[in-house]
Simulated assay, not measured.
Amino acid sequence: MKAELAVLLLIVASFPLASAQSVFVQTSKATYNYGDYLSVTISVSSVTGKNAILHIIDSEGIKSSGIPVQITKQNTTITTPVPFNSELFREGKYQIQVEYNGIMTSAPFLLVDIGNIVMPFGSNVIVPQWLDGAISDSMFFKFLVEKETVKLPAGQKLEEKTEIPDWYKINGKWWSERKISDSEFVRGLQYLVNQKII
């Protein structure tokens, strides 16, 4: 009997016990500013083939719709396609909440306004259309002026026909590729306005 028990214990000991799934989430920064892109890393102890569901929760407890995140490896990093913008996000404390395989976890971050120049919401669609000629210089410029991103000099009115130099479109391309910041792109346009080139 003792020999059989010893063999059974040896067999059980040779099989690893199933470990509990663990899930962690963290943001790339503790504090974000308007114009920053949110970057989140989800770490799991084992990949199950299921998606994680991510929510952003504001300081009033309002939760975004669930964003499915495909988990194919133990560490998955995602970055938002558009930066934080005051049109959509108020300053304050936020939580990233992630649910994966029945486990919920969260991480806090803070959003503050330090006066960064930020392209208006929708620019990620408008700029490529302007670059491709789908919308005119006038429509693009009107969009930026109406959103108060580019300011007209005192007394100057928005004209029906506005022309932006073709060579400035390279800056639009660089902005679309995130090679230059919102500030660099807008300051260049503002300079052209101030110099009466636009």
Rank of each mutant, 00 (worst) to 15 (best):
181 S>D: 00
6 A>N: 05
65 S>K: 05
120 P>L: 02
155 G>E: 04
125 V>F: 13
140 F>T: 04
158 L>W: 09
94 Y>E: 01
148 E>Y: 07
127 V>A: 05
125 V>S: 10
94 Y>M: 04
119 M>E: 01
170 I>E: 06
73 K>Q: 15
96 I>Y: 00
89 F>Q: 09
4 E>I: 13
51 N>T: 13
77 T>R: 11
49 G>C: 03
138 S>K: 09
89 F>G: 00
1 M>Y: 06
40 V>G: 00
73 K>N: 11
137 D>G: 10
157 K>Y: 07
129 Q>K: 15
42 I>A: 02
79 T>L: 03
10 L>E: 04
46 S>Q: 10
34 Y>H: 03
174 W>I: 01
52 A>V: 13
55 H>V: 09
91 E>T: 15
49 G>D: 03
95 Q>G: 00
50 K>E: 11
40 V>S: 01
188 G>C: 07
195 Q>W: 07
185 F>D: 01
2 K>Q: 08
114 I>Y: 03
60 E>A: 12
6 A>G: 00
27 T>A: 05
14 S>G: 01
69 V>K: 01
183 S>C: 04
12 V>A: 11
52 A>F: 11
70 Q>R: 14
92 G>Q: 08
119 M>K: 03
187 R>C: 08
109 F>I: 05
88 L>V: 15
155 G>S: 12
5 L>A: 10
95 Q>P: 00
73 K>R: 14
116 N>V: 04
110 L>I: 14
60 E>V: 05
143 F>N: 07
40 V>P: 02
193 V>R: 03
123 S>M: 08
177 E>M: 12
13 A>L: 06
110 L>H: 09
71 I>S: 02
102 G>R: 13
98 V>H: 00
126 I>G: 00
40 V>T: 09
15 F>H: 04
36 D>C: 09
143 F>Y: 15
133 G>Y: 06
150 V>R: 07
52 A>E: 05
90 R>L: 09
43 S>R: 10
95 Q>D: 07
85 N>E: 04
129 Q>W: 10
157 K>S: 09
129 Q>R: 14
9 L>W: 07
166 D>M: 05
129 Q>N: 13
126 I>C: 01
156 Q>V: 15
132 D>K: 12
159 E>H: 10
122 G>D: 06
173 K>N: 02
71 I>Y: 06
73 K>M: 07
122 G>K: 10
104 M>T: 15
188 G>A: 08
91 E>R: 10
3 A>I: 13
181 S>F: 09
48 T>G: 00
88 L>R: 14
94 Y>W: 04
148 E>Q: 14
178 R>V: 01
171 N>L: 12
74 Q>H: 12
148 E>S: 12
69 V>N: 01
85 N>P: 05
167 W>D: 04
